[in-house]
Amino acid sequence: MSSRGSRASRITEDEINDLVLKLQALLPNFNQKRTERVPASKILKETCSYIRKLHGEVEDLSERLSQILDSMDTSGVDVETLRSFLQR
């Protein structure tokens, strides 16, 4: 493979910095405009932690939904009632 092809597949430092800033904007604890620079490692650690937290919330909500659906009489499911439960 030519060195030109391998350079084209590499991500630049500017691209990495841009991606880290985009991640930072998505994090609740870091999305405010800050004047001080937050290290990329801290942003990446916080991103991993936040994803784990969101995953746990999804699991909890899924469990709640399963419990609600299990307790319902599914033979005559009222769509509005189901929507109401899902929006809680």
Rank of each mutant, 00 (worst) to 15 (best):
E13L: 11
N31L: 01
S75N: 10
S84G: 12
S49A: 08
R34A: 14
I43G: 04
I43F: 04
T74P: 01
L21T: 10
A40Q: 07
D18F: 10
S49Y: 07
V38H: 05
E80K: 15
L86N: 03
A25R: 15
S49E: 11
H55I: 01
D14G: 07
Q24P: 02
V38E: 09
M1P: 02
V79D: 10
R52S: 13
S41N: 05
T35A: 13
S71P: 06
D78I: 10
E46T: 15
E36P: 01
V38W: 06
K22V: 02
S84R: 15
G56N: 15
I11H: 03
S49W: 03
T12D: 08
Q24V: 03
R37T: 10
D73A: 10
Q67V: 02
I16K: 09
Y50S: 09
Y50C: 08
G5A: 12
S6C: 01
R4N: 09
S84P: 00
D14N: 12
P39I: 02
Q87C: 06
E36C: 04
N17I: 01
V77C: 14
C48Q: 11
E57I: 04
Q32V: 09
K42H: 11
F85H: 15
T47N: 04
T74F: 00
R37S: 06
R4T: 12
L54H: 06
A40G: 03
K33W: 03
D60G: 01
S2I: 05
S66K: 13
V79P: 08
D18A: 15
P39V: 04
M72S: 11
S49G: 00
D70R: 08
L54K: 12
K42G: 02
S66W: 05
R64T: 03
K42R: 13
T81Y: 07
V20L: 09
N29E: 12
D18V: 07
V77N: 02
S62W: 01
N17P: 00
E59D: 12
Q24G: 04
I16M: 05
I68W: 05
V77I: 15
S6A: 01
R7W: 04
A25G: 06
Q87L: 11
L61K: 14
K22A: 12
S3N: 13
N31W: 01
V79H: 10
A40V: 03
L54C: 14
G5P: 00
D70S: 07
E36K: 12
F85A: 12
L44C: 12
E59H: 04
L21R: 15
R88H: 07
S2F: 05
F30Y: 12
A25H: 08
L54V: 10
S49F: 07
P39Q: 06
